[in-house]
C-alpha cells in the first residue's frame, strides 16, 4: 500500500467493500438489493405456494355480529394481552387444543395472532365458557378468576352496538377477498338481529348462510344489541369453525 495518492485497499474482491462503504448512494442501493432478495425468497412464495394455506372444511366469513365483535376486540386492544395463535408446541397443544392453522386466519383483516400473553391464548375459547361467564368476566374479571389482572370491560354490556358502518365493513371485507356472497351482503342487518333472536324465523336463514353460528342473546340484561353481545358472539365462535374430524393432519405437515 502506498502512503500517498488515492485510497487503495488491495486488489481481491473481498477487499473492495470500501467502494460501497465510501459511497452512501451505492450503500443504500446495495442494502435495497439485499432486502429485496430476502423478501423475494421469504415472502413471495407464501403467495403462490399451495401449501401455505391448508385445505380445511368449515371456514366461513364472520357473521355481521361476530364481525362487529371483532372490531370491538381490535378497538379495545385485546390483542395486546391475548394471542390467537396456538403454536405447534406440545405444551400449547395440550393446553389450548389443536395448533392454529393458517386457514383459520384467512378471512382476518387484520389477523389477531398477537405476540403477548398477559392473558391466555384465546384462539379456541369458543364454547369453553358459558355466555353468563363471559358477561360476569367482562364486567368484573376477578369475580370469576380471582388472580386475573384483566381490566373491567363492563361498559360493553351497557353500550348499544354502533352498526352504522357495518354494511360498509362487510363490503370492504368482500373487496379484499373475504367470500361474502350477494345473499350475505343483502342481509347484513337482518342477520345481525337474527343472531340474538333464537326464536325468530330469520335465525334459520342466518344459520344457512353462516353454518355453526351461535345464535343466542349473549348478554340477556338488555333487550337491544350491546357491544357485549357482539364481543361474546365473536368469542364463542373463535376456533370452532374448522372441522378437525375432516382435517388431514398428515397431508399438512410442514
Amino acid at each position: 500500500m502506498s502512503s500517498t495518492g488515492q485510497p487503495h485497499h488491495g486488489g481481491s474482491l473481498f477487499s473492495r467493500h470500501h467502494i460501497l462503504e465510501t459511497s452512501p448512494i451505492l450503500l443504500v442501493l446495495g442494502i435495497l438489493v439485499m432486502v429485496a432478495i430476502g423478501g423475494l425468497v421469504e415472502i413471495v412464495p407464501l403467495f403462490y405456494l399451495k401449501s401455505t394455506i391448508e385445505t380445511v372444511q368449515g371456514m366461513r366469513p364472520y357473521t355481521p355480529l361476530e364481525l362487529a365483535g371483532r372490531n370491538i376486540y381490535v378497538r379495545e386492544g385485546c390483542y395486546l394481552c391475548h394471542s390467537q395463535m396456538i403454536r405447534s408446541l406440545r405444551d400449547e397443544v395440550e393446553r389450548y387444543g389443536h395448533y392454529s392453522l393458517a386457514a383459520e386466519s384467512m378471512y382476518d383483516h387484520p389477523f389477531q395472532w398477537g405476540s403477548k400473553r398477559n392473558g391466555p391464548d384465546i384462539a379456541r375459547v369458543g364454547g369453553k365458557y358459558t355466555d353468563s361467564w363471559h358477561v360476569a368476566h367482562l364486567i368484573d374479571p376477578r369475580s370469576v378468576v380471582p388472580q386475573s389482572i384483566m381490566p373491567s370491560y363492563g361498559f360493553l354490556m351497557t353500550t348499544a352496538l354502533d352498526t352504522r358502518a357495518l354494511v360498509d365493513n362487510v363490503a370492504t371485507n368482500r373487496e379484499v377477498g373475504v367470500p361474502y356472497t350477494d345473499d350475505m351482503m343483502a342481509n347484513v342487518m337482518t342477520d345481525l338481529k337474527a343472531q340474538v333472536s333464537p326464536d325468530a324465523p330469520e335465525a334459520a336463514a342466518l344459520l344457512k348462510r353462516y353454518p355453526k353460528a351461535v345464535v343466542r342473546k349473549f348478554n340477556p340484561a338488555t333487550p337491544e344489541i350491546t357491544e357485549g353481545d357482539a364481543v361474546i358472539a365473536y368469542l364463542q365462535m373463535l376456533g370452532t369453525l374448522v372441522d378437525f374430524k375432516l382435517y388431514d393432519d398428515k397431508a399438512n405437515l410442514r
Partner: peptide, 24 residues
C-alpha cells in the same frame, strides 16, 4: 428454498408439525 410449486424439504424431511405430533 422455495421452488415453483413446493420447497426443498431437507435431507431428513423435518417438519415442525410432524415433530409436535411425535411429541404429543
Amino acid at each position: 428454498w422455495p421452488l415453483a410449486s413446493s420447497y426443498t424439504a431437507g435431507l431428513f424431511g423435518y417438519t415442525n408439525r410432524g415433530r409436535v405430533a411425535e411429541e404429543l
